[in-house]
Lab assay of single mutants.
Amino acid sequence: MEVRTIKVFTTVDNINLHTQVVDMSMTYGQQFGPTYLDGADVTKIKPHNSHEGKTFYVLPNDDTLRVEAFEYYHTTDPSFLGRYMSALNHTKKWKYPQVNGLTSIKWADNNCYLATALLTLQQIELKFNPPALQDAYYRARAGEAANFCALILAYCNKTVGELGDVRETMSYLFQHANLDSCKRVLNVVCKTCGQQQTTLKGVEAVMYMGTLSYEQFKKGVQIPCTCGKQATKYLVQQESPFVMMSAPPAQYELKHGTFTCASEYTGNYQCGHYKHITSKETLYCIDGALLTKSSEYKGPITDVFYKENSYTTTIK
């Protein structure tokens, strides 16, 4: 009895394709271990004539594949690729409408935090270190965002349907971005203890939790000093293409032309909904596939993004 075979390709990165001759009487799992086709788990399936010449994702289970996976995804987590594939199996079914010149995501599976993050990423200057993220990001900007969303979920250790947080998501993504040249110098002034300067680099240099107003941050924000008295913390120097200011959701007025974009969060910790506000020729609110415009805006804002380049204080 002759062994019926077909020729397929296996890959971990969709760049390096490895030619395989597979036995049609055995499952993919018996031949390769966990195997995925377009995100779908085909591990328990036997090869079919229609699979001839198709590319299958496999887990990096030998040295060659491990090197290829690390170079593309910059992670050695053995569960990463499987999590990416199972997320992709959902995100490829989502709709990605162009809204006001940006790629958004039609609401499904509690994905409003991903839509808000995706919209924000198209408006701030950011370059990702893992080629996987950078490639998928370019495709997302062009309207094909399924891979990018699935990668975000995998890097953030999230599953489809789980509630997510924009600030946490951005923080994970910033860790995989090139923020080497970003720098922030802060000064804390206390009447009792004097003053202390701190220099922050990388992710810490672009994120701040405690106030939404970048102007206020430049002037000074009140913080408790270690001595128990009130101290003032203010920005001395900022070198970065953008800054992200966050605070627990509270009524906040966004003035046209003073910011790049913002995240609105309605609801409580267990259950809520994100919308995205962007400042173009007027203010726009993007909620999944829905767009509304207004000249002014007041609502429960939790993150505001500002364009920056270089700032030095005039406070002496």
Results as ranks from 00 to 15, higher is better:
residue 177 A to Q: 03
residue 176 H to Y: 12
residue 277 I to D: 00
residue 144 E to N: 13
residue 6 I to V: 14
residue 25 S to Y: 12
residue 194 G to T: 03
residue 9 F to K: 10
residue 257 G to S: 08
residue 198 T to S: 11
residue 186 L to C: 08
residue 73 Y to L: 02
residue 49 N to K: 14
residue 231 A to H: 03
residue 136 A to Q: 11
residue 103 T to E: 03
residue 30 Q to P: 07
residue 59 L to H: 15
residue 72 Y to L: 08
residue 68 E to M: 06
residue 225 C to R: 02
residue 102 L to M: 13
residue 69 A to F: 10
residue 143 G to Q: 05
residue 277 I to E: 05
residue 295 S to G: 13
residue 253 E to W: 08
residue 198 T to G: 04
residue 263 S to E: 01
residue 245 M to K: 01
residue 33 G to C: 05
residue 187 N to K: 13
residue 100 N to W: 04
residue 171 S to F: 15
residue 71 E to Q: 11
residue 27 T to V: 13
residue 139 R to P: 04
residue 131 P to T: 05
residue 199 T to V: 14
residue 90 H to V: 12
residue 98 Q to M: 11
residue 111 N to H: 05
residue 173 L to Q: 04
residue 290 L to E: 14
residue 149 C to S: 06
residue 90 H to K: 11
residue 157 N to H: 13
residue 110 N to L: 04
residue 288 G to P: 02
residue 231 A to N: 02
residue 171 S to I: 14
residue 90 H to E: 12
residue 294 S to H: 14
residue 196 Q to W: 13
residue 51 H to W: 06
residue 252 Y to R: 01
residue 38 D to E: 14
residue 161 G to V: 05
residue 184 R to W: 06
residue 241 P to H: 07
residue 303 D to M: 04
residue 69 A to R: 06
residue 26 M to I: 12
residue 279 S to A: 09
residue 302 T to R: 00
residue 180 D to K: 07
residue 287 D to C: 00
residue 41 D to S: 12
residue 18 H to A: 07
residue 147 N to Y: 09
residue 143 G to E: 04
residue 202 G to P: 01
residue 40 A to Y: 14
residue 138 Y to M: 15
residue 216 Q to S: 09
residue 149 C to E: 05
residue 294 S to G: 11
residue 88 L to E: 05
residue 167 R to Y: 02
residue 72 Y to R: 09
residue 38 D to S: 10
residue 255 K to T: 12
residue 17 L to M: 10
residue 153 L to Y: 12
residue 259 F to I: 00
residue 23 D to R: 12
residue 187 N to Q: 11
residue 252 Y to A: 11
residue 136 A to C: 06
residue 200 L to A: 11
residue 266 T to I: 11
residue 267 G to K: 07
residue 8 V to D: 02
residue 43 T to D: 11
residue 172 Y to W: 12
residue 66 R to W: 08
residue 245 M to Q: 02
residue 263 S to M: 08
residue 211 T to G: 08
residue 118 L to N: 05
residue 174 F to S: 02
residue 96 Y to K: 03
residue 144 E to P: 01
residue 218 K to Q: 06
residue 80 F to N: 04
residue 97 P to T: 13
residue 264 E to W: 03
residue 137 Y to G: 03
residue 251 Q to H: 15
residue 193 C to N: 06
residue 49 N to F: 12
residue 154 A to R: 02
residue 14 N to G: 11
residue 93 K to Q: 08
residue 72 Y to H: 13
residue 292 T to I: 10
residue 151 L to H: 01
residue 301 I to A: 00
residue 274 Y to P: 00
residue 269 Y to Q: 15
residue 79 S to D: 14
residue 154 A to P: 02
residue 93 K to L: 09
residue 201 K to V: 13
residue 56 F to W: 02
residue 12 V to D: 07
residue 275 K to W: 00
residue 53 G to K: 13
residue 43 T to W: 07
residue 87 A to N: 14
residue 303 D to L: 05
residue 193 C to F: 00
residue 304 V to T: 04
residue 38 D to Y: 08
residue 265 Y to M: 00
residue 135 D to L: 09
residue 220 G to V: 02
residue 155 Y to A: 04
residue 44 K to E: 15
residue 187 N to E: 08
residue 95 K to S: 15
residue 3 V to S: 14
residue 34 P to I: 06
residue 75 T to H: 08
residue 123 Q to N: 08
residue 107 W to V: 02
residue 85 M to R: 07
residue 45 I to S: 12
residue 13 D to G: 06
residue 78 P to G: 12
residue 219 K to F: 07
residue 9 F to I: 09
residue 31 Q to Y: 13
residue 211 T to E: 15
residue 42 V to G: 04
residue 273 H to C: 02
residue 63 D to C: 09
residue 167 R to A: 05
residue 292 T to W: 08
residue 131 P to A: 06
residue 49 N to L: 13
residue 157 N to R: 11
residue 65 L to Y: 08
residue 66 R to N: 10
residue 288 G to W: 01
residue 198 T to H: 14
residue 150 A to C: 01
residue 295 S to C: 07
residue 182 C to W: 09
residue 163 L to M: 14
residue 52 E to P: 08
residue 159 T to A: 14
residue 98 Q to H: 10
residue 186 L to K: 03
residue 86 S to R: 14
residue 215 E to Y: 05
residue 126 L to K: 00
residue 89 N to C: 11
residue 45 I to F: 13
residue 218 K to N: 00
residue 139 R to W: 10
residue 220 G to W: 02
residue 208 Y to G: 09
residue 290 L to C: 12
residue 229 K to H: 10
residue 160 V to K: 02
residue 214 Y to H: 02
residue 123 Q to C: 08
residue 169 T to D: 02
residue 108 A to F: 03
residue 73 Y to T: 04
residue 157 N to Y: 06
residue 170 M to P: 03
residue 159 T to W: 10
residue 150 A to D: 03
residue 275 K to A: 10
residue 277 I to S: 00
residue 245 M to G: 00
residue 15 I to H: 15
residue 148 F to P: 02
residue 131 P to V: 04
residue 102 L to A: 10
residue 231 A to R: 02
residue 299 G to N: 05
residue 229 K to A: 12
residue 295 S to H: 12
residue 88 L to Y: 15
residue 261 C to W: 01
residue 222 Q to P: 12
residue 306 Y to F: 05
residue 94 W to S: 02
residue 246 S to W: 01
